[in-house]
Amino acid sequence: MLTSSPFLAGCAGIQSALDPAGVEADAVAALFWVMVAGAAVIWLAVMGVLYYATRRDRVVHSETFAGRVILWAGAILPTLILTALLAYGLSMMPRLRPWDARAAEDAPLRIEVVGEQFWWRVTYHRDGMEPVVSANEIRMPVGERVTFTLRSADVIHAFWIPSLGGKMDMIPGRENTLTLEATKAGIYRGPCAEFCGSSHALMALAAVVMETGAFDEWLARQAEPSPGVGENEAGRAAFLANGCGACHAVAGTEANGTIGPDLSHLGSRVTLGAGIVENSKAGIGRFIAETDHVKPGVRMPAYRALPDEEIDAIAGWLKGLE
């Protein structure tokens, strides 16, 4: 138990394909276990033959017999097994990939995710609603098929939430489509799965699967400015005076930049800085002052020249944007 536990630790948790919480991830996990079971049977059979061939009082077989063994066990049987596995894998593809682009376009919930160095721009397109902009987190209702439109603004990134489904690249100049259906509510994690630069390993997103009613309430709140906008006057003034609004948008203020992540409801996100910092007032302050240390290579400059009180005020205001 003690020796195997470090290996089993990867079999569960918020970022494991072996602990599926979605229809697609279930299929991927089933494929994996079929492969493992098949490989175990073949390994045992090969080891059995090895034992048979090397034991001390072995029988010498005729060359004809040996030739037959090689033909059947070495060529025909492996071909049949590979054919079956290929058929099984291929038969899953239409379910794991949306082949009908028009059906994907008409989905009642479409989430557009754009990979950027080193964060995710997220836009929700819900039937009968204006698009809602967010960043670094996706929320989706449980039991509903959601279409993802995946793009990139700079280099190749890859979108992968192992608990929910397979991986899909985000390629500059291309629009890739993925659909996912979550079966269990919870918070999962999706890392950027294609090397995209110095902070590639610091680019992740939280995927929050909610009950349908809760999701729609949440989305309706996201469509409106946060009530926190009016509080903490000094923080808001410092945010605007230091030009943060040139890159970041906060609904309900004059900040409408689109270069960096939308911060309209930053306070209620699960993580900060695309999955790398705890979302707290201290975390926000640290991100503002030490951006280059927290996330090397990111476009936002570090604002360590700002007085501590001002950083503190900005962080307090941003944390209040729920």
Partner: peptide, 23 residues
């Protein structure tokens, strides 16, 4: 010839399962 026969069958197998272009 035997290898090529199997390879041609494997190459063609996706056409049995896939019925549309990937958007």
């Amino acid at each position: 010839c035997a290898l090529s026969l199997v390879a041609v069958v494997f190459t063609a197998m996706p056409a049995i399962f896939i019925a549309e272009c990937n958007p």
